[in-house]
C-alpha cells in the first residue's frame, strides 16, 4: 500500500536479463541497508508503470535506479530529474522516470521536491543471470553513491 516516505527509492530491471538486473540488485542491497529506517521506502519492479505515480506523488524525495544503454559498461551517472511529457509510444506497461513525475503532478497535484536518477551502463542485457565484469566492478561505487545520495535526500528540509 502507498505510504509517504522521506525518500523513495524506485528501481527497475530484470535479473534474468544480465546487467539489466543491476536495479533489482541495488534495491535488494538498499532493503538491507535501510531495513530499520522507516524514512526510506524501497520499491522495485520489472518496469515502471503508471500506477507508481501514486507512490511518487506521496514521497518527499525520490531516487530512481535503472540501467541505461546510453552509458558505457559500468559507467555510473547521477543526475537531477525534471518532469517530462510522455514520449510517443506505449504506456501500458512501462513509462520513464521523468514521465512518472509528470503523471504524479497531473493526477495528484504534487510530486517530490527533489528527484534524482541513478543509472548504470550495461555490458549485456541478453538473457542470463549475473552481472558482467564491468558492472560487477561498478557495484561498490554505486552502493557508496546510493548511501551518499539517500543521506543528502534525507537531510533536505521541507520547503
Amino acid at each position: 500500500m502507498t505510504s509517504a516516505a522521506r525518500c523513495l527509492i524506485l528501481a527497475c530491471g530484470n535479473t534474468l536479463r544480465s546487467d539489466d538486473g543491476i536495479g533489482p540488485l541495488l534495491a535488494s542491497w538498499a532493503e538491507d541497508r535501510w531495513r530499520n529506517d522507516s524514512r526510506v521506502r524501497i520499491l522495485c519492479d520489472h518496469q515502471w508503470t503508471p500506477e507508481l505515480a501514486e507512490e511518487v506523488a506521496a514521497a518527499e524525495t525520490v531516487l530512481f535506479i535503472d540501467c541505461s544503454l546510453e552509458q558505457g559498461p559500468g559507467e555510473i551517472l547521477l543526475r537531477d530529474l525534471s518532469p517530462a511529457s510522455l514520449k510517443p509510444g506505449l504506456v501500458t506497461h512501462h513509462i520513464g522516470a521523468a514521465e512518472l513525475l509528470s503523471l504524479a503532478q497531473d493526477l495528484y497535484g504534487k510530486r517530490p521536491r527533489t528527484a534524482q536518477l541513478l543509472t548504470i551502463g550495461p555490458d549485456s542485457i541478453e538473457l542470463g543471470e549475473g552481472l558482467s565484469e564491468p558492472v560487477k566492478q561498478a557495484l561498490a561505487v554505486a552502493q557508496r553513491m546510493l548511501i551518499t545520495t539517500v543521506q543528502c535526500l534525507l537531510n533536505q528540509q521541507p520547503d
Partner: peptide, 27 residues
Amino acid sequence: AQRHIFGVAAARPDLGRAGIALRRFGQ
C-alpha cells in the same frame, strides 16, 4: 499524441486516480 493515460490524467484526473486505485485494490 495526447490520446493516452497522460491525456486522461489531464482531462479527468479523478478518473485517472480511480483507475490506479482499482488496479491497486486488485493487485
